[in-house]
Write a protein that binds this DNA or RNA. Structure first.
Lengths: 217, 217
DNA sequence: GCACTATATTAGTTGATTCAAAAAAGCAAA
DNA sequence: TTTGCTTTTTTGAATCAACTAATATAGTGC
C-alpha cells in the first residue's frame, strides 16, 4: 500500500474540502487554499495523478478518485477524532484543538485510529460540530436529526451526542438516556422549547439546550 | 525558539541514549544506532554543533550541551508518556506501543505534553518500566524504591505505580492504597515474599506481585 | 615511526518541494 | 474569428535535507 508525505496528504485534504458541491476543483483554488503558487500546485497534481489519487486533465481541474476520496476521509476522520480527544479528554478549548490535530492526523497507524475511536465512544461529531466519517469513510449526517427537531408523537432512537463531555454524559445517565434508548416525543413546550419525552415508562422534561445536543433517528 | 526536524530529533535522542555512562559518544556508535554511515553522522554533527545542541570536537566524539540534554529528555518524556497512553488508555499490547510512540514523540506542543501527563495521572514509568522524565527533565529513579524492597519497621510514602491499568488501580483502591498514603512495613513473609503493612490503623497483606509494582520513598 | 582504526572531508546524488518567468490553452466579447 | 484577458502549464532552476562512496587525515597502540 502506497504512503503519502504530510504535504501530499494536505493537498489531498484541500482538494477534498474544495470539492464540496463542485464537480472539479481549479488549480488556483488549491493554490489559494494551500497558500502557494499555481505552478507548485500543477506539479503536485501531476504527481498525485500518477499515483492515481486524483483524476487530472490539463486545464480542466481535478477531482478525487475513489482511492483519493478514501484517503481524504480517513484524514478527516483522524483529524476530528483527535480533536475530540484533545477537547473531551485533555480539556483543551475547542478553538485550540485544530492546530495540534493538524499534526496528529498524519500519524500512520490504522489500529491507533480505531482504538482511539473506541476509547472516545465512537463519537459522531467533533468539537466544532462537524461529522466524523466512520472507519469505512461514510458520513451519515443526513440520516440523523436532533431530538429538538422531532415532532410530537414521533418515536426515535438515540444514536449519538454532539457533546461528549463528562458533565453532559452524566446528565444523560441521570435521565436514563443512553445510546439505543427509544424515546417518544410527548410534547413540545413553546415557551422555552423544552420537550417532554417518554423513555420506557417514565416521562422526562429535557431542556432545549440538551435536546439540541442529542442525535436521533 | 529553534525547532528540529524529526531526523534531527532522532539523532539527539540517539546521542542521549548512547551517552549513558560515557563522557562522549563516538561517531561510529551513532552511525550504528541510526543504521547509517559515519559520513552522514559527521554531517549531522556539524549541523547540530552549529545549533549549539552538542559539543563537538573533531575526532573527539560528542556530548550534549545543556540545551541538547533538555531537548533529549523532553523527547524521551513525550515518547514514554505516549507509550503509557497507548497501553493504559487504548489497550495496546506493551510490545506494540514503541513504533507508534516513535511517531507521536515528534508532535510539537508543550501544552499537549503537559495535559497528557495530567490525564495519565503523572505516571513515573512507561509500560516497559522505564522512568518518565518530568516537565523539567528530571528523572528521580534513585529516590524511589519498590514497596517489596522496604525493610521491616520502615515507614514510607506511596509515590507511584509501575502498572496503571484499571485492574491494578481498582485493587489499590480496595486496599486503601493511594498516592501519598503512609505505609508502615510490619512484616516480610519469607515463604512467598508477600508483605504485611499497616495503612492508617489497619493491617493488610500485599502479595509480592503487587508490592513490586508500588513505588515508595 | 608504523600500521591500523576511527573520523572527517570532498564531491556529488537523490528526492521533495518550491517558484519566477514564459508559453500555451481556454474563454468570451466584439 | 480575432482580440484581449484569465487561467493553467511548462520550463528551468533553486533550495533543502539527508545521504553516500571515495579519499584524506587524525589518533592510538605497538
Amino acid at each position: 500500500m502506497q504512503t503519502f508525505s504530510p504535504t501530499e496528504e494536505n493537498y489531498i485534504k484541500a482538494i477534498y474540502h474544495l470539492s464540496k458541491g463542485k464537480e472539479t476543483v481549479a488549480t488556483n483554488a488549491i493554490a489559494e487554499a494551500m497558500e502557494t503558487t499555481a505552478a507548485s500546485v500543477t506539479d503536485m497534481l501531476r504527481k498525485l495523478n500518477d499515483k492515481q489519487i486524483i483524476d487530472y486533465t490539463k486545464y480542466k481541474g481535478v477531482s478525487l478518485t475513489t482511492e483519493g476520496r478514501i484517503i481524504a476521509t480517513q484524514l478527516v476522520r483522524k483529524h476530528r477524532l483527535w480533536e475530540v480527544f484533545l477537547k473531551e479528554k485533555l480539556g483543551f478549548a475547542w478553538d485550540k484543538v485544530h492546530d495540534i490535530a493538524e499534526q496528529l492526523e498524519h500519524i500512520r497507524s490504522e489500529e491507533l485510529t480505531e482504538r482511539l475511536d473506541g476509547f472516545l465512544g465512537n463519537p459522531k461529531f467533533d468539537p466544532h460540530g462537524d461529522p466524523i466519517p466512520d472507519a469505512k469513510g461514510r458520513i451519515h449526517t443526513q440520516n440523523y436529526k436532533l431530538l429538538s427537531e422531532v415532532s410530537e408523537g414521533e418515536q426515535v432512537v438515540v444514536v449519538g451526542v454532539k457533546d461528549s463531555s463528562a458533565k453532559f454524559l452524566n446528565y444523560l445517565d441521570s435521565q436514563k438516556i443512553a445510546l439505543g434508548s427509544k424515546v417518544q416525543m410527548e410534547q413540545k413546550v413553546e415557551f422555552d422549547n423544552s420537550v417532554k419525552v417518554k423513555i420506557g415508562d417514565t416521562n422526562t422534561m429535557i431542556s432545549d439546550m440538551a435536546a439540541s445536543l442529542i442525535l436521533v433517528m
